[in-house]
Simulated assay, not measured.
Amino acid sequence: MALAQVRDVATHAGVSPATVSNALNHPEKVSETTRRRVQAAIEELGYVRNDAARQLRQRHNTAVGMIVLDVANPFFAAVVRGAEDSLGVHRRPVLVGNSGQDAERELAHLRLFEEQRVSGLLISPVGDVLDRLREISRRGTPVVLVDRHHGDDEFPSVAVDDELGGRMAAEHLLEQGRRRLAMIGGPTSIRQVAHRRAGAQAAVDAVEGATLTMVGTEAMDVESGRDGTRRLLAEDAERPDAIFAANDLVALGALQELVRAGVRVPEDVALIGYDDIEFAASATVPISSVRQPAVEMGERAAALLVAAVEDPDAPPEHPRFTPTLVPRESTLGD
C-alpha cells in the first residue's frame, strides 16, 4: 500500500495542499476548525511527514546534533535530558551520538551530523577535534562545548570546575584521616579526568605525609572500576586507605571488587566517586560523591546554542558550575 501524500490529505480534508502545509508548519495561519480537519485526515490516512525532503527543499535542518562521551552513563543521560527539554521549547529535536570515548567514533558522528545539515552542535569531546569543529563553525553551524571549557574561548562552553571537584574529593578523604590515596579512572587524555586528578594532587600536596597513586583505565565504566581495583589490590606496595574514583560508575565497580576481596568500606578503604548519579546513593554501601548539576548543564548548553543560532556574531559565553560534596557511608561510616 502506497504511503499517503500531502495531496491525499488535502483531498480527504477538502482543503488545498498549501493549507495542509500551513496546518503542519504554521498552525497559527489556519483556523482551529481547519487544523482539526487536517489532523483528522492525517490520522485516518496514516500520513507521515517526510522531514528529510522538507528540510532539503528549505535547505536547513532544525535538529541539533549532540555527541556525548558515554550515553550509558546516567550523568550524560541527564545532560541530554536537560538539553532536550530546553531545545524542545524552540521546536528543535536533538539527535544524540555516543562516542563511547572513542575518537574515531566521534569523528564518524561529526561527519554524519554535517551531512544531515544540523542547525547546531553540542559536543563533549574525547579526541582532538578542535580543528574539525572550527571548520564546522566556519561553515555556519554553531558549536557549543559541553562539560568542557576550551582555553582560548573561541567556542561557547558549559563546564564544571573539575579541578575544584577533584580537590574537594581528596580533601574530604584527608579530613577523614586518610593519607594513602589512590585515584582510579581514565584515560587521562579525557580532560575531565586530568583536571580531577590535578585537583586531587593539589590537595594531597598540601598535607605532609599524604600520597596519591594513579591507576589508569581504558574507560569510565563499572568494569573498569573493578579492573583498576583488582590491579591496585594486587600491588606489592602498601594498600591505600582511600580511593577516589573518577566517576560514580568506576566507584561502583571499585566497591564491588573491594567487597569481593573482603575489604571493608570505609573501615579499611574509604571510597568517593564523582557525578552523584542515582545509583551512588542506592549502592550496598552508599557512595560519597562530588555532584555535578547535569540537567542544568544541558539546559544552559542548549540556551547558548540557541543564542548562537540567533546571533552568530555574539561573543561566546563560558558559564562554569561549582560542584558540591555529597558525603555518605563509604567515607563516613555508619
Rank of each mutant, 00 (worst) to 15 (best):
A4H: 05
D275R: 01
A242P: 03
E329M: 12
R35C: 04
V158R: 06
R91T: 14
R49A: 14
G298V: 02
A13S: 14
L133Q: 04
L249G: 00
R196Q: 10
R54A: 15
G185F: 08
S189A: 15
K29E: 12
N50M: 09
S157V: 10
L45I: 06
A53W: 05
V144I: 13
E208G: 11
N22Q: 12
T229G: 03
Q292Y: 09
T331E: 00
E310M: 13
I42C: 08
R132W: 11
A83G: 03
E154K: 10
I190W: 05
L249D: 01
V158D: 06
N50T: 08
D51Y: 13
D248R: 00
E238T: 11
A294Q: 07
S124F: 00
N247C: 00
E208Y: 06
I136E: 00
D248K: 04
L249T: 00
G262V: 11
E235H: 13
A169T: 02
L232S: 06
E310R: 13
R328L: 03
V259S: 09
A281R: 11
D8K: 09
R139D: 14
E238Y: 04
E223F: 13
A234E: 11
S99E: 04
V30T: 06
E32L: 15
E114S: 12
A13L: 09
P312N: 07
R54M: 07
I243M: 10
R138C: 08
E84C: 06
G127W: 05
V146A: 01
A308E: 07
G228T: 06
N61L: 03
A303I: 07
V144D: 04
M168D: 01
E317L: 12
M220R: 11
R81W: 07
E257G: 05
F279K: 02
V118F: 02
D153W: 12
V204P: 06
S157W: 07
D131R: 11
S282W: 14
T322S: 15
A83T: 02
P187H: 05
V326P: 00
F244I: 09
L122H: 01
L87W: 07
R178L: 08
G88M: 10
N50L: 09
E32K: 15
R35T: 05
S137R: 13
